[in-house]
């Protein structure tokens, strides 16, 4: 279990996260949904060790030592692939850092390249493949490290709508193999409902939890689920919450009927 307790973070005296709390069960697929600037990226960067919180505690299964690249891996919004490395070497990057021998890491990278459907492209460089393919390489680069928790920061925001839906389906298929914990940041309500077991609506800045919804939709997602009554009801609920989630708003100021997990 991942536990974020009373985390505070400010930049140049401006509070981005204030007393932020979040608990995530093992194996849960959580979407963090919130308007731009409410502190979602800041939270993920704190979780993967890129930023240190000013105050508060973060523990994984009770222990505070979270190892970036091993316990948690982040998939970046703009892919963040290294342009001088082939797809194969990009995917093997984390293994290389940890001194895994070349043949071994290439074999493992190859396996995950195939898993995300990029077999045949391992020798390509990022600028030679499409955005959707780049992000699949980015996903493989994270998965190959077998992290406890996969962090994804608006990973599909930069691709076209059809590609995005294909990537979402593919992500769920991959996730379904071993159901590791995923924290997926998005500002799309549709994406959050389609992917997640649990949608945490964030408002701010400063970032705060406005609502916390267990969707309870069936898995694997049936075809046409996007048109179902339950789906549309969830969309309506999230929309109302998001409309209340502007800057400076705190959860106390809004009616709170969401049920946590």
């Amino acid at each position: 279990m991942l536990s974020v307790e009373a985390v505070c973070k400010q930049f140049d005296g401006r509070a981005v996260l204030v007393e932020f709390d979040l608990r995530v069960e093992d194996g849960q697929f959580v979407c963090l949904l919130g308007p731009s600037g409410c502190g979602k990226t800041t939270l993920l960067k704190i979780l993967c060790g890129l930023l240190t919180p000013d105050r508060g505690r973060i523990t994984l299964n009770g222990s505070p030592g979270i190892r970036p690249g091993v316990d948690v891996c982040l998939v970046f919004q703009h892919y963040g692939l290294f342009p001088w490395l082939s797809v194969l070497d990009n995917v093997a990057f984390g293994l290389k850092l940890r001194g895994v021998p070349t043949a071994d890491r290439q074999r493992r990278a190859q396996e995950f390249i195939a898993l995300v459907g990029l077999a045949g492209f391992e020798g390509h460089y990022p600028h030679q493949i499409s955005g959707g393919m780049q992000q699949r390489a980015g996903l493989a680069r994270a998965l190959v490290n077998a992290p406890e928790i996969l962090l994804m920061d608006e990973p599909f925001a930069a691709v076209d709508a059809l590609t995005r839906e294909r990537l979402q389906e593919q992500l769920l298929e991959i996730w379904d193999r071993d159901r590791k914990t995923v924290i997926f940041v998005t500002h799309s309500m549709d994406e959050a409902i389609y992917l997640a077991d649990r949608v945490v609506v964030m408002g701010g800045p400063p970032g705060a939890v406005m609502d916390d919804v267990l969707t309870g939709l069936p898995r694997p997602r049936p075809k046409g689920i996007r048109g179902s009554d339950e789906y549309l009801r969830l969309m309506g609920q999230l929309r109302r919450r998001l409309e209340e989630a502007g800057p400076g708003r705190r959860p106390e100021e809004t009616a709170h009927d969401g049920k946590g997990s």
Partner: peptide, 16 residues
């Protein structure tokens, strides 16, 4: 900072 941050997020030391 972008790509350096990527490496850091994958556990790279300063040297790496």
């Amino acid at each position: 900072r972008g790509l350096v941050e990527v490496a850091e997020a994958y556990g790279a030391s300063e040297r790496q």
